[in-house]
């Protein structure tokens, strides 16, 4: 019986939620190894060679679940990844602006109100099921969902207090190009105000409400 159990590595820093998910998956025939930090998960992965990683995105200080998932997929090419999070948009996670979701599933934590859902997702991923079904970020009600990666980056820079000249310098474009991107952002977010600065402030407020302050560092 134990040979047929699929090894799942669960990375979740909240112990209450982790226990709930682990019990659920164990009950449905998976062999769950539990890690509460990125370091623990990396150690366990080297030993257990899981077939599936179920990872929370926000793990507190240090690498995010997205970092861990991406790295594990490089060392374990057949690993299936399911992100289980409350972050509406993976692109809003610190340091994940250029993150590629690939074949991973992205589920909101509340989805577990349906106890079978997670195990169905895992089974589907293992059997090569349709990936679009399991992308909650795509049908989230986030006001930022319709923004492109470029627009999100510009908005992030605006929220960090950068002026148009600085944004243009960081992105290696002209100020005119930055202004054009800003216009598009305002249109996507449906913000209409005669004063450009007021409109931009409103856009920043929407961004900050969903993403928090991003204060990453650029080296090289």
């Amino acid at each position: 019986m134990s040979e047929s159990r699929v090894p799942v590595l669960l990375l979740e820093d909240d112990r209450g939620y982790a226990t709930l998910v682990a019990d659920n998956l164990n009950h449905r025939g998976f062999e769950v190894s539990l890690a509460h930090s990125a370091g623990q998960a990396l150690e366990l992965a080297a030993v257990k060679k899981p077939a599936v990683l179920v990872a929370d995105v926000y793990l507190g200080p240090g690498p995010s679940g997205l970092d861990v998932g991406q790295r594990m997929q490089e060392s374990l090419p057949n690993l299936k990844v399911v992100y289980l999070t409350n972050v509406k948009e993976p692109r809003l996670v610190e340091g994940a602006e250029d993150f590629k979701m690939g074949s991973a599933a992205y589920l909101h934590k509340d989805r577990l109100v349906n106890p079978e859902f997670l195990s169905d997702v895992i089974k589907s991923r293992l059997t090569g099921g349709k990936r679009t079904t399991f992308r909650d970020d795509r049908d989230s009600n986030s006001r930022l969902a319709d923004l492109t990666a470029t627009q999100i980056e510009v908005l992030r820079l605006m929220a960090a207090g950068q002026g148009n000249a600085e944004i243009a310098h960081v992105r290696g474009t002209s100020q005119r190009a930055v202004e054009t991107i800003q216009q598009r952002i305002l249109a996507v977010l449906n913000i209409d105000h005669p004063s450009r600065s007021v409109a931009c402030t409103r856009a920043i407020k929407i961004y900050l409400a969903e993403a928090g302050l991003h204060q990453g560092i650029s080296v090289g």
Binding site: D13, Y17, D56, V57, Y58, L59, D110, L112, P115, G212
Partner: peptide
């Protein structure tokens, strides 16, 4: 501020999800 982000996205939201899941079961 950063810690608040971690708490909000981590502990608080996870706890609310656990409560929601427990009630819904």
């Amino acid at each position: 501020q950063r810690n608040w982000s971690y708490l909000l996205h981590g502990k608080i939201q996870a706890s609310l999800s656990v409560a929601l899941i427990k009630l819904s079961q």
